[in-house]
Nucleic acid binder design. Structure first.
Length: 616
DNA sequence: AGCACGCCGACT
DNA sequence: GTCGGCGTGCTC
């Protein structure tokens, strides 16, 4: 006998499913994972069937209005993943499901033609699905190892998902794969046009393509017989979603691998400490390709070797540049600050130009003569007179690569000098001296005789617990681009990022980084929940944050640390005041429990919005 | 989330 | 008097 009641979740922050009657017309045609239209209050909305049963404790049941699509849009395995996802990232099951689906599916009430799973279902070969981290070398040299894993999956007739950090990288990877693989490759990306995204998704869902290449959301791709998920440049920040739910594609990949017993191949020259620790604890295999290359790395302590007055270039670096130029060599100078990065300050009253909507300085765009907010994209023409005292002139002094460029050009007038940052459109290949920001990560070839880090201390001194990894990654990448010699100007000569590089000791960095994180209590040893309360009204946001904090403290578990509300790093953003509460705990489950119970017994002040970001 | 219901303050 | 602000609770 067919079950007569469907449990339906909707894309709202409501935890429990709603029961609906299945009318005789649909009886037997409603399966778990089906998309349906249901009456909900005054409206008809899209919901997802997550369970079927015979009886409901609810007396006034309404009926499902329509069953959309020929088959369920969510498989049992992906539904199971959605449950885990909702728990880890503290959202409702309905919201989780909507994250998994193409944008168009949660809006269109048009049915989609999906072929039945059963045609394709077969016994997947479940051998020991070991996951592996491939690291130590750039992608070019690691590609054979990655390809080997992909081919192994394909030879077993399994599906593969290849995640890339940005959609600009999709083409490159697709072309690489096409050289070696005859199978149909499908691209998935939220940036695709809505219909295109849906079309490709349906193709994958129907088993017409078994290889998917795409950005972070492709980790949810409904690939048949999934055998492998590959993550390219795993340490890219792009794998973290920047809106609620703030998921991380790498973590979701590992969650999915447990459910579907598929492998995960993680690649990065410098993987995150989080993944490296998985390899160290033998949860995943490790292929460390790090080559000892005996390239000399020289540290220049700029507290001893003071550069000349106002100069960014120390005397030893000056001589090294001069020598290299004389030998007609190429030079790369790294300074992680964009050319126009500067702010306007009044010569008379010291007022600093600020964004009217955010608590940040406005940065000056040298070329367009505009001032812009990096946070909310507010912009206006550069004012000449101070808007505060209406009399002083505003000074805009550049501190970034453009300043360095002008200095180098002055010291070495015959050298061809050019700048490179993420905004550079036509880059001059034939320069003698290239001055670059972290955009050098785009360079792949060992073409520079001399490379030098002009400034890195800002990066090393950042409060963010991932700053050290980022600096190490940048330094190692620079080293790979170096033919003869590398120099680092710093005051932090004993810092382990720099020392590991000088000692040519890849493992030393990770061991040091992980022991620090364990000591201070950072991921992967504890998990962090960042709860942000925001509101146009400062007092409302603070009051709400205080109430939540008290409630958290009330239901505190063991092995947990709760930090009092404090203004966010950017205290006001887009006209909204922001307060942050941090919770540290060993287990995600405990974080979910405490947040659920605190939210339940704290009434939400209107005009405030609260978001939860796990491991921000 | 979105919407209705209901309870208090300052207005034609 | 009553219009509308926002706090509260519910959605099968």
């Amino acid at each position: 006998m067919n079950k007569q009641i469907a449990q339906v979740v909707v894309g709202l922050p409501v935890d429990k499913p709603f029961d609906y009657k299945i009318d005789s017309a649909f009886l037997g045609n409603v399966k778990i994972g089906h998309r349906v239209i249901v009456p909900f209050q005054m409206k008809k909305i899209i919901g997802y069937v997550v369970g079927l049963k015979d009886k409901s404790s609810f007396s006034r049941l309404r009926s499902i209005s329509k069953v959309l699509d020929s088959e369920p849009v969510i498989s049992n395995a992906l539904l199971e993943l959605a449950v885990k996802f909702a728990e880890r990232y503290c959202c409702s099951l309905g919201e989780a499901i909507e994250v998994f689906l193409p944008t168009n599916l949660k809006k269109t009430k048009k049915a989609v033609e999906i072929s039945a799973d059963s045609i394709f279902l077969r016994e997947k070969q479940i051998d020991s699905a070991r996951s592996v981290l491939i690291c130590g070398k750039p992608i070019g040299q690691s590609w054979p190892n990655i390809l080997k894993e992909i081919n192994a999956a394909i030879s077993k007739d399994n599906g593969v998902i290849v995640l890339v950090p940005e959609n600009s990288k999709i083409h490159e990877i697709v072309n690489q794969l096409k050289k070696e693989i005859k199978k149909e490759i499908c691209v998935l990306d939220k940036q695709l046009k809505g219909t295109e995204e849906l079309k490709n998704w349906v193709k994958v869902k129907n088993g017409e393509a078994s290889i998917v290449v795409g950005t972070r959301s492709s980790v949810f791709a409904p690939v048949r017989n999934l055998g492998l998920i590959v993550i390219i440049n795993e340490d890219s920040f792009s794998y973290k979603q920047d809106q609620s739910p703030f998921y991380h594609a790498r973590d979701v990949a590992f969650m999915r691998s447990k459910i579907q017993s598929c492998s995960v191949v993680v690649f990065s020259q410098t993987p995150t400490a989080e993944v490296f620790s998985l390899a160290q604890s033998k949860d995943i295999d490790l292929i460390n390709l790090y080559p000892k290359d005996n390239l000399p790395v020289q540290i220049i302590d700029i507290s001893n070797y003071k550069p000349r007055k106002n100069s960014l270039i120390s005397i030893p670096l000056y001589y090294a540049i001069e020598k290299t130029l004389n030998e007609r060599g190429k030079i790369l100078l790294l300074m992680n600050k964009k050319g126009f990065s500067s702010f306007g300050i009044c010569a008379k009253c010291q007022y600093v130009l600020k964004c009217p909507r955010c608590d940040v300085h406005l940065t000056y765009l040298f070329h367009s003569k505009e001032v812009v907010c990096r946070q909310c994209h507010y912009k206006k023409k550069r004012p000449e007179i101070c808007p505060n005292c209406n009399s002083g002139y505003l000074n805009f002094s550049g501190q970034g690569i453009e300043k360095l460029e002008s200095q180098v050009a002055r010291i070495f007038p015959s050298a061809r000098v050019s700048c490179y940052d993420t905004d550079t459109k036509n880059f001059k290949q034939n320069s003698d001296v290239v001055i670059a920001t972290q955009a050098v990560l785009n360079f792949q070839n060992k073409i520079f005789d001399l490379t030098a880090v002009v400034q890195i201390d800002g990066e090393l001194n950042r409060l963010d617990y991932r700053a050290a990894h980022k600096a190490f990654s940048l330094l190692l990448h620079l080293k790979n681009l170096t033919k003869k010699q590398m120099m680092i100007q710093t005051r932090l000569t004993e810092n382990y990022c720099i020392q590991s590089l000088v000692n040519d000791d890849f493992l030393e960095f990770y061991n040091h980084e992980l022991s620090l994180r364990e000591e201070i209590g950072y991921p992967p040893f504890v998990h962090i929940a960042e709860i942000v309360v925001r509101s146009v009204k400062e007092d409302a946001a603070l009051a709400q944050a205080d109430m939540l904090y008290k409630s958290f403290v009330n239901c505190e578990f063991e092995d947990m640390e709760i930090f009092e509300p404090q203004p966010d790093r950017i205290a006001r953003l887009r006209d909204q005041y922001r307060f942050v509460i941090l919770i540290k705990a060993k287990k995600y489950e405990d974080i979910n429990k405490i947040i659920k119970s605190a939210f339940k017994d704290t009434r939400r002040k209107s005009s405030t919005i609260t978001t939860v970001n796990i491991d921000p």
